[in-house]
Design a protein around this nucleic acid. Structure first.
Length: 416
DNA sequence: TGCCCAATAT
DNA sequence: TATATTGGGC
């Protein structure tokens, strides 16, 4: 933490806020795709109308909805009644009636809204006061386009990691932290938890990802490459999905969790006596060893069919979460597959609103050790995409070695 | 209520 | 990394 303090003292905060690699429009665009700012409702409080006008125009380019107040008291009054209509407050530090510190204490803490402080000066004292009192960010005026482009992402991740509150110690490290896995809990000595009003704020809730059928297929393919469900490790699966299947936004933890679930499912499927092994049985640790000797039969297919992934859509707890969810959902036609699901989830946001390419059917090569499987119209392991494709087609070449992959789990396949 | 399932903790 | 536990949602 001494490092952080030193950084604040020595670096021009302008530099802190301007990422060099974001100086190209392309990348700004990329960024805003990942963290869409459309309809983010901003309350901008600045005594200087010129300043706020410039800011508003800039923000409009990124589709923020900006409401301006030139008077701090009025802004507070507005917020008291309408805080649910605002996602982010930007407050000029040197407001004559309510300065940045007071605003932070009132809005940031009592109303639990994220507050970003702006100022013409970036004196150490100003920055320190702001960050110490919980500013999500400190923007030196004039604020650049690049800063606006990444602003919501910063605020959003602040909210993820610390319920919107911040401390000087973590300021520089967190400023550009966009990695989900960086959002570990901070050890709180247990007080300050005012951020628990649920539902209406994305900043207090992490969007929950969903394993869509398409994403799951990619997972399966990756697992095949790794060998089998039992030998694959999360890190490698993730790497494969990212590098070879263009999956974005997925974390190692996502993969690990999914892997765990599948192994558990597999165990349950193989426990013929208790088709519904209760959760508690996990703790007898039998299943951990059992997975090494899996026996599957055609009547007990694994993965896709045992997981009810077919009719699911991404689920988000609120609109903001939906808007900010990582674009991890692969190109898919599940929206058109059944519009009912779209209607059922009021928070569903189609991450790919443009017309979709048809998903290539997925092919699974049978294990060479089980030639007769190739003639079976319905192998146990068939992707959901295959289910309606009218039969198996085997591509001439596949880039990996089948002898080793997931089908080894089927060495006791029931061929009858 | 019990289960599902992803997140998070250990 | 593997496993255990939690917690929201249905």
């Amino acid at each position: 933490m001494s490092v952080a303090l030193e950084d604040i003292l020595t670096k021009d905060s302008r530099d802190l806020l301007r990422k060099e690699e974001l100086s190209h429009d392309d990348e700004i665009y990329e960024d805003s795709k990942e963290f869409p700012t459309t309809n983010i409702r901003v309350l901008l409080v600045d005594a200087d109308p010129k300043s706020s006008s410039v800011m508003k125009n800039l923000m409009a380019q990124f589709s923020y909805q900006v409401t301006i107040f030139e008077n701090g008291d009025e802004a507070i009054s507005f917020l008291v009644n309408s805080k649910h209509e605002i996602d982010l407050v930007i407050w000029d530090f040197h407001m004559p009636d309510i300065d940045g510190v007071e605003a932070l204490n009132t809005i940031g803490k009592e109303m639990d809204l994220p507050v970003v402080i702006t100022s013409h000066d970036h004196k150490k004292e100003t920055v320190m006061k702001s960050t110490k009192n919980g500013a999500c960010d400190f923007l030196v005026k004039p604020v650049s386009r690049e800063v606006i482009a990444v602003l919501w992402r910063h605020v959003y991740h602040k909210g993820m990691s610390k319920s919107g509150l911040d401390s000087v110690e973590s300021y520089p490290e967190d400023l550009y932290q966009s990695n989900e896995e960086g959002s570990k809990n901070v050890e709180d000595s247990g007080e300050q938890n005012t951020s628990d009003q649920k539902g209406d704020k994305s900043l207090t809730k992490k969007p929950r990802m969903t394993w869509t059928p398409e994403l799951h297929q990619k997972f399966e393919k990756a697992v095949e490459k790794m060998g089998s469900l039992d030998s694959a490790v999360p890190k490698q699966i993730l790497k494969c999905m990212q590098e070879e299947m263009n999956v974005e936004g997925l974390t190692r933890n996502n993969v690990a969790s999914h892997l765990q679930r599948l192994r558990w499912q597999k165990y349950r499927l193989n426990n013929e006596k208790n088709p519904s092994v209760p959760k508690e049985t996990r703790e007898d640790s039998g299943w951990r060893n059992a997975v090494q000797n899996i026996t599957l039969t055609a009547a007990k297919p694994l993965l896709n069919q045992s997981l009810n992934l077919h009719n699911r859509v991404p689920y988000f707890t609120n609109h903001q979460a939906a808007a900010n969810a990582p674009l991890q959902y692969p190109t898919t036609n599940y929206v058109t597959m059944n519009n009912r699901h779209f209607m059922n989830n009021p928070y569903y946001v189609d991450p790919f609103p443009q017309p979709q390419q048809l998903q290539q059917p997925q092919y699974y090569q049978p294990s060479p050790q089980i030639p007769s499987v190739t003639t079976k119209p319905e192998p146990a392991y068939v992707s959901s995409a295959m289910e309606n494709s009218g039969g198996l087609v085997y591509p001439p070449d596949l880039p990996y070695n089948y002898g080793e992959h997931l089908l080894s789990d089927y060495s006791n396949f029931d061929l009858s």
